[in-house]
Structures are given as C-alpha cells and as structure tokens.
Amino acid sequence: MAEMDTSSQGGHKKGPGVKKSKKLSTRVDLTPMVDLGFLLITFFIFTTTMSQPTAMKLNLPKDTDNPEEQNKAKESGTLTLLLGSNNNVFYYEGVLAPDASNFKSSSFKEIREVITNKKSWVIQNMKESDFVVVIKPSDGCTYKNVVDILDEMSINVVKKYAMVDISDVEAKLVAITEGNPAK
C-alpha cells in the first residue's frame, strides 16, 4: 500500500558464475513523507500572519498662539470627553458648569451611546457641522484609550473632533471623581 514503484524491470545480466541474488523491491513507502508534508503545511498555515497591521491617519492642526486663528466651536454643539485613568471616561456637554453639575462619568462601552445621542440631538436642533467633539486626555490615561476614542470618532462618523490639553480644573475634577484627589 502507498508505494511508489520504482523497481526497474530486468536489470543487467549477471555473469554465468554469479548466483542470481533475490531482487530487492525498491518500492518506497510514501506515507510518512505525506505525513511530514502535511505537518509542515499545518505549521506554515498557523505561523502565517494573516492580518497585516492597519494604519489610522491623524492630522494635527498647527499650533497657533494667536487665539483669533483658533477654531471656535459652538457651545451647545460641543461634547467634551475626558479620559481618566483606569479606562474611565467623563464627559460634559457644552461648557463645564462652575459647580460641575453637568460633569458625568461613563465608560468606553457606554460612551458610544453618549456620542450618538448628542450627534442626533445636534442634527435635529442645529446643523451637523456644529457637532464638535473635544477630546481631553488626562495624564493617567493610556495610549490605547486615546486610540480607542479616536476610533470611536470614525465609528460614529464624527466629522469634527479635536484633541485638546486638559485644563487644571478638569484634571482635578477627574482626579477627585476617581477618588485620588491628592494627584
């Protein structure tokens, strides 16, 4: 079974005095070779990297010291997201109230709902171009958090968003809400 017949018919003639030796079969059993072949195939299939890394484009605005050149956003169409440590997200709509009454906490799972709600509200009451998301990462958040939130912008097709440095008041508020006001 499973051989390759390589025995040649009729070899050369032996001399008259030479005893004819029993002809050995030259059949090779190929089964182990096939086994080995498939083993290697499986190895290469598993080690092949199927997914190539993708790249996310990010265009930065040029820093301007002149406040007149900075883009203004309409107050009621703004949603500010604050990224805290331990994957916490905080947000407020419009301008932060002095008593921080509109400062709400959320998580990366729930933030999508917040963004979509705000977006549909802005589309209903204003123009879509008035919808601006301001992202303020605090020092405690990770690179993954930032990429996740930028990804959230493309998932929810937010056309205008900006990454802004967190202000001291907000940083303190985030730290207090997270329970480590000493920071």
């Binding site: 890394p53 790249a55 265009n59 040029k62």
Partner: peptide, 12 residues
C-alpha cells in the same frame, strides 16, 4: 517639525 500628518499602527 511641521509633521502634521502621521499614521498610527493598529491591528484591524
């Protein structure tokens, strides 16, 4: 340095 466009490598 006025590199205002860059790409972040991510897994899909």
């Amino acid at each position: 340095n006025d590199f205002l466009k860059f790409q972040m490598v991510t897994s899909p």
